[in-house]
């Protein structure tokens, strides 16, 4: 949500693009999701006596705190529609933390907000990751006394 965080979130990361790709399996239901979310937002506002700006959709009219509370409620154990909303949340998260709608190397090169914020390293020129430095290279603990000669627990 604009202004809440200093840098881009799921939408800037490509959540809409991902959701609109039929490979996800949720694309056909997007209108239903939007309608449902707005109905829940209206009910949420009515229960709390909140006045909503009618020039924008009800969910958009909610404050950040109220949107958060609504999403928490919809995805909480016991909510009858939980599975639907968790699926939607899963893909929105994936847009941010794995850019599942685009090639990872290209997303990184383009400064994808999620992958960049997480500090994911750039791949080699051939698009593959290799880490030549990977180990502290020295013993850092004592082995369990019952370790077998094959390196397994006894």
């Amino acid at each position: 949500m604009a202004g809440v965080s200093p840098d881009g979130g799921a939408v800037a990361a490509g959540a809409i693009e991902l959701l609109e790709w039929d490979a996800t399996g949720v694309t056909d239901g997007l209108d239903g999701y939007a309608g449902g979310l707005n109905r829940h937002a209206l009910a949420h506002a009515a229960e709390r006596g909140l006045a909503l700006d009618e020039s924008v959709p009800p969910f958009v009219a909610l404050s950040f705190e109220d949107r958060t509370a609504l999403v928490r409620w919809l995805t909480a154990p016991g909510h009858p529609e939980k599975a639907l909303w968790v699926s939607l949340a899963l893909f929105c998260n994936m847009a941010y933390d794995s850019a599942a709608h685009t090639h990872t190397a290209e997303a990184l090169a383009a400064g994808h907000p999620g992958l960049t914020a997480m500090g994911i390293a750039m791949p080699d020129a051939d698009g593959l990751w290799r880490f030549p430095a990977y180990s502290y290279g020295r013993p850092l603990a004592d082995l369990h006394p019952d370790t077998t000669p094959t390196g397994s627990p006894a």
């Binding site: 990977y134 180990s135 502290y136 290279g137 020295r138 013993p139 850092l140 603990a141 004592d142 082995l143 369990h144 006394p145 370790t147 390196g151």
Partner: peptide, 25 residues
């Protein structure tokens, strides 16, 4: 230990610091 990744080494060192053993898998 030469094969153990940084994350494995970190876990080993933390285990040792807490009085535990740790094994390369």
């Amino acid at each position: 230990w030469q094969d153990v990744s940084y994350s494995g080494g970190l876990w080993a060192a933390a285990c040792k610091h807490a009085g535990r053993t740790a094994n390369p898998v």
